[in-house]
Design a protein around this nucleic acid. Structure first.
Lengths: 254, 254
DNA sequence: GCCCGCATTGACTCCGGAATCAATTTTCCG
DNA sequence: CGGAAAATTGATTCCGGAGTCAATGCGGGC
């Protein structure tokens, strides 16, 4: 549907505007989408105004509404164009016909590469799409789960093949993998590591992949040697801890 | 400062209201703070209305402003009471006079325990305080960094004592640790794992701790065997990937 | 060159939510 | 008790931002 009418009368005469109407339209759409990513990454979905997006895109306020029904659909589109893409890549890595290690490295690589190409986009995905309650209607979260689930299956299969110990929970393993990746990236976003240092990004990528692989591969397997003395100290405080904002009686008065 | 005036005329006559004025006042404050946590966790900081907080707390709209200067200070207080507390616990674990493994387990334990006690509170800290651009003014992020930095120092010191390989980046190691913890918890928040299953929480906790420790401890150390063949496949696609929303020319038309 | 129609504009409406405040109730002291 | 001060209420004000729309510009088909 919506095939661009093959005009023989438009033989690319100028490189500036060789585009058919439909092309320019699509371009506009992309520009606005891109601007949205930019702005969302700065202020968050709820924190930003359509005016910001319009300004960033260099178009009039109203035009945003010409291309997108409303703010929510805009976010939805950012999501679709960005995350779907990312998700596809990750899943293709996961699905590769290779040993676990290679595939894990592949996943890590894809994530870091995406970050290198488009930090802002990744930031939005991580912050808004991945978890934020923003909007709320859509499937966001579920799509995020999708990657986890896919990775979990990969680990489960690896267990069948004895590539990793069977006592591990595949879902949790998947979770940890993406936790490492995500926080690794976040530490760049937040300036804990220098994002302009390509070397650093590569080193981070490799350390994440290798450390995680070590952890999971050589896990003190079913030998049972793992869970035993996990809690050595602790215990005394079990009563006190937590985030707990409201306590019943702050302290027993004394 | 602000010591409760020791009234001899208030000998705890009723268990319902044995409180001095200052006590009741503090209670109210806590109730509102708690309500804020509750509501923030549902809708996010920007997504919720003061009215929601008031209703949740069972008080009048205006009262919220009696106890807190504005919405932002409210978030700030949630932050202070929750995160500071958590931060303190984590740092005390980090500072313990023990081997690295025990301390890492301690940190993981504290985090998971906090979550078990108050999932909502943790969620807010993770989602809003930790990273969200919400508000923006405050130091949020920096406080988040604080834990990372503290943990990084722990790892650096452990390297001195040869407890872990020297080629690891301590900051990144810290980052990965909290990444694993955070995502582990998130998977409960998101329903990937059953949060009502205490067993599951404990198992998750231990798996996170042990896997991470394995990964970091036995890392194919400075043998140099690690970074080499990291990138085996990949490479061909380096040009394609990313989140990239707006591409210059979608494809060479053809 | 002349229209037709879609792209584009930005002023305007409308609403919801933050913050204020005068009025009312409660507390607690002498 | 009496009354002053603090707690508590919710209607009211005010503002900023989402979404609308009539007016204008522009491309491209004839």
């Amino acid at each position: 549907m919506a095939e661009k009418s093959e005009k023989p009368e438009k033989p690319e005469k100028k490189k500036d505007k060789p585009q058919t109407r439909a092309e320019r339209e699509a371009d506009r759409r992309r520009v606005i989408l891109r601007a949205a990513v930019e702005v969302f990454s700065k202020k968050g979905y709820l924190g930003c105004r359509i005016q910001d997006v319009a300004k960033e895109a260099g178009v009039a306020y109203g035009l945003v509404y010409h291309y997108f029904k409303n703010k929510d659909e805009l976010l939805e589109s950012v999501f679709a164009s960005g995350w779907q893409n990312f998700l596809g890549r990750v899943q293709s890595e996961i699905g590769r016909d290779q040993d676990l290690a290679s595939r894990v490295r592949g996943v890590v690589h894809v994530a870091f590469e995406a970050y290198r190409r488009d930090p802002k986009g990744v930031k939005v995905l991580i912050l808004e799409v991945g978890r934020s309650p923003a909007g709320g209607a859509v499937n966001r979260g579920s799509a995020f789960s999708a990657v986890i689930v896919a990775a979990a299956q990969m680990f489960a299969a690896a267990q069948q093949r004895n590539e990793i110990p069977s006592h591990l929970d595949p879902t949790l393993a998947a979770t940890m993998l993406f936790g490492c990746i995500e926080m690794g990236l976040t530490s760049f976003v937040m300036g804990l590591l220098d994002k302009r240092d390509d070397q650093a990004i590569e080193r981070a990528r490799d350390q994440v992949a290798e450390t995680f692989l070590n952890g999971i591969t050589q896990a003190r397997a079913g030998t049972g040697a793992s869970i035993p003395n996990v809690r050595t100290i602790r215990s005394a405080d079990t009563s006190a801890g937590g985030i707990e904002t409201a306590r019943q009686r702050p302290r027993p008065s004394n």
